[in-house]
Structures are given as structure tokens and as C-alpha cells.
Computed example of a mutant assay.
Amino acid sequence: MDAILTDIAWFLVVGIAVAGFLIGMFWLGRRVRDKEPEPPTAESQPHLPNGGAVHEVREEREPVEIPEPGLRPHDMQGYGNFGSTRAHDQEEVRRRKEREQGQSGGFGSGGPSS
């Protein structure tokens, strides 16, 4: 009978300790949360510009030959650009597209067969 009462007492002690630990953690979390700043209001959020949404810009770039031994750090212009330059004459880009159309007739590409 003493063994059963001892087991019940240990069960109660451990249960009370776990419950006290959980209550303490909730209390600590509440204190930390009270010190945090308030959530932002709707007025403080970013708004669309007066002109509406900003759209992406597509532009053609002139190809640049990559040297055989590979690029040296001073050859690169920006991160991963490999020295490419912006196409200055959009008419030239349009002519190049017309000239290159129909020359890539690989299987399944929809181009003319050769």
C-alpha cells in the first residue's frame, strides 16, 4: 500500500512541476510579447505609386564572347553579367530578330524543317 501511495505522490509532484513549468513559460512569453512593438497599421504600409503598378522592362542585350580560359574577376561587369552591354538601337534589335527567325528548326521547336 505504501508503494502505491508513493507512486501517486511522485506522479502528483511531477505533474505539478510540469504544469508550473508550462505556466511559467506562458507568463515569460507574455512578458516578452508585451515588450515588442505594436503591429503596423494599414496607413503605415506601402502604397502603389500614383501612376499605378510598375511593370518590368524587357530589353535586348548584345552577346559578348566569353574568353576560352574563362572570365577573370576584372572582366566581369556586375554580378553575372559577363560584360554584356545594352542594345542601343532598338531598330537594329528588331532587324536582327527578323533575320534570325526560321533558322532554329530543331525537333519540336515549331521552326521550318531543313
Rank of each mutant, 00 (worst) to 15 (best):
Ala19Cys: 05
Gly83Asn: 01
Gly80Met: 15
Gly83Tyr: 01
Ile66Asp: 11
Met76Lys: 06
Tyr79Gly: 07
Phe107Met: 04
Ser109Arg: 03
Ala42Trp: 02
Ser84Asn: 05
Gly20Glu: 00
Glu91Asn: 05
Met1Gly: 15
Pro112Gln: 06
Gly106Ala: 08
His88Ser: 10
Gly15Ile: 00
Arg72Asn: 12
Glu60Arg: 06
Gly105Arg: 01
Arg61Glu: 03
Trp27Ile: 14
Pro37Asn: 02
His55Lys: 15
Glu62Trp: 12
His88Asn: 11
Gly15Phe: 00
Leu22Arg: 08
Gly83Ile: 02
Leu12Met: 01
Gly70Gln: 12
Ile8Pro: 00
Ala17Asn: 01
Met76His: 11
Pro69Arg: 09
His88Lys: 13
Lys35Leu: 14
Arg72Gln: 15
Gly78Leu: 04
Thr41Pro: 02
Phe26Arg: 15
Pro73Cys: 11
Arg95Cys: 02
Gly24Phe: 08
Glu100Pro: 01
Pro73Gln: 10
Arg33Ile: 04
Ile23Cys: 04
Pro49Val: 06
Pro67Trp: 06
Leu12Val: 00
Glu100Ile: 06
Gly70His: 09
Gln101Val: 01
Arg30Tyr: 06
His47Asn: 05
Val13Thr: 08
Val18Trp: 07
Glu68Ser: 09
Gly111Phe: 03
Arg72Ile: 13
Glu68Pro: 09
Phe21Ser: 07
Phe21Cys: 11
Asn81Ser: 12
Phe26His: 14
